[in-house]
């Protein structure tokens, strides 16, 4: 019966559409080109990326290397009154961080129902929106990104691209033989809602605090310039 429904739905779709071969359809789509991207707040990708993150309500840190990143995580845990135990997913980049430099005891696992904080390593940053890509794989259980109260995400400055078009090109290029990951999460800040009288509240069902640590040899004033650009 469902098969008959499929046949009828597709028949109506065909009847209301145009009769082209698959090759012609591909050519027609190719001819439509790419979408215009928004005006970038800065020509510097890292500054543009961080200013967007700040606008999105994320807290942002900029560090020169992996050791400093670990110390920044430790500082985050201290500021939020957590002990030095941290859940991070079983990501190779996470596993090789110099955790001792921050005195952190990482547990490579998926968060439990009550765990309040987790850290992840983003595959990409998108300057257009201030988003970080966390694809589904061993290293990125969705629970670690959505169930915790506080989420820390690291991303390499070298992995920041200008816009979605560049991000998709990179994702396609890195795809495994079996295709794209089964889920791709672009996260741009803490969860929020304005559903009660239009009053914006940070921290709805997903993380209340979302900290992004950008790792790279960037000029000292990069974060300051991003803050100025964001007006914060």
């Amino acid at each position: 019966m469902e098969n008959e429904a499929r046949t009828r739905i597709l028949a109506r779709a065909r009847h209301g559409g145009r009769d082209h071969s698959a090759q012609q359809i591909r050519q027609l789509r190719e001819g439509l080109g790419s979408a215009p991207a928004p005006v970038a707040p800065s020509d510097d990708l890292a500054i543009a990326f961080m200013s967007r993150l700040i606008n999105n309500g994320a807290s942002v840190a900029c560090v020169p290397n992996r050791s400093a990143a670990v110390r920044e995580i430790a500082d985050f845990l201290y500021r939020h009154n957590y002990d030095r135990r941290l859940i991070t997913a079983n990501d190779p980049k996470m596993a090789t961080l110099p955790w001792r430099d921050g005195g952190i005891l990482p547990r490579f696992a998926t968060v439990g129902d009550k765990d309040p904080v987790a850290a992840s390593y983003g595959h990409l940053g998108i300057a257009e929106t201030g988003s970080v890509l966390l694809p589904s794989d061993r290293g990125n259980p969705a629970r670690n990104s959505f169930l915790v109260r506080d989420h820390v995400v690291l991303v390499d400055a070298a992995d920041v691209v200008a816009n979605y078009e560049q991000a998709w090109a990179r994702i396609q290029a890195n795809a495994q033989p079996r295709g794209l990951p089964r889920a791709l999460h672009f996260i741009s800040g803490p969860s929020s809602t304005a559903d009660i009288v239009g009053h914006l509240v940070q921290g709805a069902h997903g993380p209340v605090t979302w900290q992004c640590i950008v790792i790279g040899q960037l000029p000292d004033d990069t974060l300051e310039r991003a803050r100025e650009l964001a007006g914060k």
Partner: peptide
Amino acid sequence: RLLVRSATGQSVTAYTSFYGGSRREEEQDG
């Protein structure tokens, strides 16, 4: 890009996810 700006006046929402199939063998949730 059109949707978010027209719906809430944001440039992006907190979450944009693309969902395909079920949990794969090596994955821990989903």
